[in-house]
């Protein structure tokens, strides 16, 4: 097992180099340079000398391979560089201050999705073609088809504007500093309700569908028949024997959605004005802030690779068949 994990880890290194190199190339191919965008290219005050200086300062005057090599060299010392945006802060610091809120949002979202979609999936599988199944099917299609931003605006209209129950955007009231401790906590939580609802709604549809499908397959297996024949209660048959096996594919999907936890949701963060990773990335792209874009990419792609690895390893842990196959292949 350990050897397998190590081998996978080694393969990940060239992969990461490849990902960063291609990304680096693509970003630099996009027209518009940070130096130009910053000096306000078409403004009356545009200053050519200034632009040249910035290019030099950022190292953009060197050939692309050299720029990439310099970037890799710095990265090997874990130096992600400084942002090109006017605040010129270290990339790691910028990512560091955005990561917690995105993580919080997405972890809660993930937990909610699992907590809701597993029972929904199981119920609609065990009662296939029942009213519940039909209702959830419709719900799922609606969930798939609803654009995030539209749903978010509807919720804001209802709960933020019409009913005035929940705050619309941001993370804190503007006079948050002057609240009592408990009111501060509630204020913060209440700002998260709508964004989490929107994010959960989008993911719920897919997940509950996977769960239903996987469950449907499992309950037709012989061992489920056997369990029933043994006289086990239906609750135990489904909850213990069937569910465990039905969860297997879900583990894979879960593993693949791990990077999304860090990447952040661009749409949700933009609409709700949440200063998370998604927003940081979008802004960096518009400003052609190469160090921040690359820093983000490295963090997210590393995590994707790690998540894939973790998913594979967990998969073999929960599924004995794969573990045995893995051992055999090594011999």
């Amino acid at each position: 097992m350990l050897g397998y994990a190590l081998r996978r880890l080694l393969i990940a290194i060239p992969l990461l180099v490849g990902i960063t190199f291609v990304s680096f190339l693509v970003i630099h191919l996009a027209p518009g340079e940070p130096a130009e965008i910053q000096t306000g290219d078409l403004s009356i005050q545009s200053d050519k000398q200034m632009r040249e200086r910035l290019r030099e300062e950022y190292g953009l005057d060197k050939p692309l391979p050299v720029q990439y090599w310099n970037w890799v060299k710095r990265l090997s010392r874990l130096d992600f560089g400084k942002s090109f945006s006017p605040d010129a802060r270290p990339v790691l610091q910028k990512i560091g201050e955005r990561l917690p809120v995105t993580l919080l949002l997405n972890v809660v979202e993930m937990l909610l999705i699992i907590a809701l979609s597993v029972p929904i999936g199981v119920l609609s599988a065990t009662r296939q073609y029942s009213t519940f199944d039909k209702v959830t099917t419709v719900f799922v299609f609606v969930g798939f088809a609803t654009p995030d931003f539209w749903f978010a605006l509807l919720l804001i209209m209802l709960f933020g504007v019409q009913l005035d129950w929940l705050p619309i955007s941001g993370l804190r009231q503007i006079n948050w500093e002057y609240f009592s401790f408990w009111r501060q906590q509630w204020d913060f939580l209440s700002h998260l309700i709508l964004p989490i609802t929107v994010a959960t709604f989008g993911g719920l549809a897919g997940f509950s569908r996977y769960m239903r499908q996987s469950m449907l397959e499992v309950i037709r297996q012989d061992y489920v028949q056997t369990a029933r024949a043994k006289g086990l209660a239906e609750r135990v048959v489904i909850g213990k024997h069937a569910l465990r096996n039905a969860l297997l594919p879900i583990v894979t999907i879960l593993g693949l959605s791990l990077p999304g936890l860090i990447g952040g949701s661009i749409i949700v963060e933009s609409i709700f004005a949440i200063p998370g990773m998604g927003q940081l990335m979008v802004q960096a792209v518009f400003e052609r802030d190469y160090p921040v874009i690359m820093g983000n990419l490295v963090v997210v792609s590393t995590l994707t690779l790690v998540a894939n690895l973790v998913a594979d390893v967990t998969y073999s842990l929960v599924d004995p068949r794969i573990r045995v196959a893995g051992r055999r292949s090594r011999r």
Partner: peptide
């Protein structure tokens, strides 16, 4: 004075409607 950073024009408008 608090300057809030709200990227979406639609959200700004809804905040206005809610007097936020």
């Amino acid at each position: 004075i608090v300057y809030r950073i709200i990227p979406s024009q639609a959200t700004i408008f809804l905040e206005l409607k809610a007097k936020g």
